[in-house]
Simulated scan of single mutants.
Amino acid sequence: MPTNVHEFTWPDRVVVGTIGVPGARTFYLQVRAGTQIVSIALEKQQSALLAERIDEILDQLITLEGNPFSIPTSTPIELVDNDQLEPVQEQFRTGAMSLGWDPTTVQVVIEAYPITDVDAHDDRDENIETLDEEDVDVPEMLLVRMPVGTARAFAKRTREIVGAGRRACSLCGYPVDADGHICTLPEV
Rank of each mutant, 00 (worst) to 15 (best):
R32P: 10
Q36V: 13
K156S: 06
S47Q: 05
D137G: 01
H181A: 12
Q84Y: 10
Q60H: 10
L99S: 09
F8T: 08
E90V: 15
L64K: 14
I115V: 15
R93S: 14
I128A: 03
A164F: 00
I128C: 00
T150K: 14
P175S: 03
E133G: 13
E134H: 11
I37G: 00
P72E: 07
R93H: 09
T35E: 14
T35W: 10
M97H: 02
L42I: 10
N127P: 00
L58R: 03
D83T: 12
T9H: 01
V176D: 11
F27L: 03
R166W: 02
L185A: 15
A96N: 14
Y174C: 09
L42D: 13
V16F: 12
A164W: 00
I62S: 07
E134F: 14
Y174T: 15
P139L: 05
A151S: 07
A151W: 04
H181T: 04
W101F: 15
T18Q: 04
T26L: 05
L50I: 14
A33N: 12
L64P: 02
S70H: 12
S70E: 14
G23A: 04
E7Y: 05
G66Q: 07
Q107D: 02
E43F: 04
D119V: 03
H181Y: 03
R157P: 09
L61G: 05
L58E: 03
A151F: 02
Q60I: 01
F27W: 12
L64S: 09
D125I: 08
R124G: 13
